[in-house]
């Protein structure tokens, strides 16, 4: 099934680090592990109405956890750091967070 924009961008990552990166117009999201950079770029541009200059992605493997004899695995996830172009407007959702 084809991924829609809202399937791709799962949620923002709000941490001290990501907050500091906002100063450089870099916004961090959790994204669908199957999404590639161009899909992410398109999704962010369409959802927030901004211009994306660059996308960096980071793949994380879920940790192996065991409860007694049962071995399980947490889900893998993908993070994307999206850099906006210099003349793009900022993403409103984050507005005020880096105050």
């Amino acid at each position: 099934m084809k991924l829609t924009n809202y399937d791709i961008i799962l949620r923002p990552v709000i941490t001290e680090k990501s907050m500091n990166q906002m100063a450089d117009r870099q916004y961090t999201f959790l994204v669908h592990p199957n999404a590639n950079k161009s899909m992410i770029k398109k999704a962010v541009e369409e959802i927030f109405g901004v211009n994306v200059e660059d996308v960096k992605t980071l793949n994380y493997e879920g940790k192996v956890k065991r409860v007694g004899v049962h071995v399980g695995r947490r889900a893998d996830y993908k993070k994307a750091i999206v850099k906006l172009t210099a003349n793009s407007k900022s993403i409103e959702f984050f507005e005020g967070f880096n105050a």
Binding site: V13, I14, T15, E16, M19, G96, F97, N98, A99
Partner: peptide, 12 residues
């Protein structure tokens, strides 16, 4: 979560 104590921004 995601912030050390005393480092979270007001809006958060």
């Amino acid at each position: 979560p995601g912030f050390r104590k005393g480092k979270a921004p007001m809006a958060v």
